[in-house]
Computed example of a mutant assay.
Amino acid sequence: MYYNWLDRWDEQRAQRGEEAKKVADFILDAGRAFPGEKRIETIDEFCVLADQALSDSGFYDEPSGSSQGFERGDGWLRFPSDISTDVEENNVVWANITESGSLDQALVIFHHWNASARNRQIARFFSQRGITVVEIAMPYHFERSRPGSLYADYMLSSNLGRTIQSVRQAVWDGRKLIRWLKREGYRE
């Protein structure tokens, strides 16, 4: 029901900030994407590893049930990411919580790449309808931004290994958040 409206709204917001982006050299960095792998020299070798990861349903499975380090206060939730990167700010996940007053339903919002603001209007809309909204900061966005960066250049970048690591980190962080919501009593 809300799909078309949300899609148009999201696309308009995604176009903001395009002028700040700069061209950078293409880097494979396979060790970052696939920890423990030997040095990969060619795109063909990298693609073999990517194909193996794609066929391995466990590639995006987060480590076994890390549930430590959650801090909640003043409408925010903070917790450590289970993927550690070279950007300290990115290693702590932030989520803004808009309460509905009900433990029946929660909606987790993953914003678009390079978002510059959270979705307060959407959060308020759903919370007024009995759905608690949790807006998680994607890797290298908002509070997780790389110092000095004008946009989320490390989330989707010319460094292919970092891009895969970032997407994997986003999946792990989202799954960890959903486990926390279930432990808190949310049913859907």
Score class of each variant (00 low, 15 high):
M1V: 11
Y3I: 09
D7L: 14
E18R: 15
A20Q: 15
D25E: 15
F26W: 11
D29A: 15
K38T: 14
K38G: 15
R39C: 11
I40K: 07
E41G: 10
D44Q: 14
C47E: 13
C47D: 14
A50S: 12
A50H: 11
D51Y: 12
Q52S: 10
D56K: 08
D61L: 12
S66N: 15
F70L: 09
F70I: 03
G73M: 00
L77T: 02
F79R: 00
F79Q: 00
S84Y: 10
N90A: 13
N91W: 02
N91D: 12
I97N: 04
T98R: 08
S102V: 02
L103M: 14
Q105I: 02
A106D: 00
F110Q: 09
W113Q: 09
S116N: 11
A117L: 06
R124K: 14
R124Y: 09
G130A: 04
P139T: 03
Y140Q: 04
H141P: 02
E143D: 13
P147H: 06
P147G: 04
L150Y: 05
Y154T: 08
M155R: 08
S157G: 06
S158L: 07
N159Y: 07
L160G: 06
R162H: 09
W172S: 07
W172M: 10
W172F: 15
R175C: 10
I178A: 14
R179Q: 13
W180G: 00
R183I: 02
